[in-house]
Simulated assay, not measured.
Amino acid sequence: MKKIFLLAALIGFSPIFSQERDQIRERDEISPDNSWLKVGITGGVPVGDANNASSFALGADIRGQYLFNPNIAIGIASGYTNYFGKDGFDDFGVIPAAGFFRYYFTPSGLFLGTDIGYGFVTNVENNDGGLYVNPQIGYHNRDWNIYAYYQNTFLETDMDIQNVGVGVTYNIRFN
């Protein structure tokens, strides 16, 4: 008899549970409040090995972001960073294929994040690329992100392509 009452109670409460599942599903759907495309530019100064061959780095940044909650976001990142050659060196570049993580302390304000993936290298002989990391610290609001970064591509040879700089991205909301 207890099992029948328990079963009846569960069936009676099932609309409540299914309503909670539906609300969770609605929050998980892509919306302008939790997902957007970030498009921007970066500019930096080559450091380490890259400083010997380049005087300036200029890049385009594109990201797709999903916000799990008001503080944690993940996404994919790509773009192109061009390193302008100096002293007889040709220009070369890095095309990242990376995932990223960001932690937003408040809805507008400080954030910390990093990109991790593979950096494809252009115009460098005997090298396809390597591990790509790009930690960032910056300021954000609903529409803009302004940040400082350190970008490093660990090449398969004994050199790294690194730069330190600033970036700005604009958030394009999904509708």
Rank of each mutant, 00 (worst) to 15 (best):
Q23K: 10
D28A: 14
T106M: 13
S31E: 11
E156L: 09
G113A: 06
V45E: 03
R173L: 10
W36S: 04
A8Q: 12
I4D: 11
Q19N: 11
I24R: 14
F101C: 06
T157H: 10
G129H: 05
L131V: 07
K38W: 01
G88E: 13
I72G: 05
D28M: 13
R25M: 02
N123E: 12
I74G: 04
G75P: 01
F174M: 11
F100V: 01
L67T: 05
G117S: 01
P32S: 13
D90C: 00
F120Q: 10
F89R: 09
N52Q: 10
S108N: 14
S108G: 06
Y132A: 04
D28R: 00
D49M: 05
F100Y: 15
D91Q: 00
G130S: 03
G129K: 04
P96D: 02
S78P: 02
R173E: 15
Y80E: 09
A73K: 08
V45F: 01
F111Y: 15
G113H: 08
D49S: 03
G165Y: 14
D158L: 01
N163H: 15
P70E: 08
S31T: 15
T122L: 11
F68N: 00
R63C: 00
T81W: 06
G12W: 02
S54D: 05
N51G: 07
N127W: 02
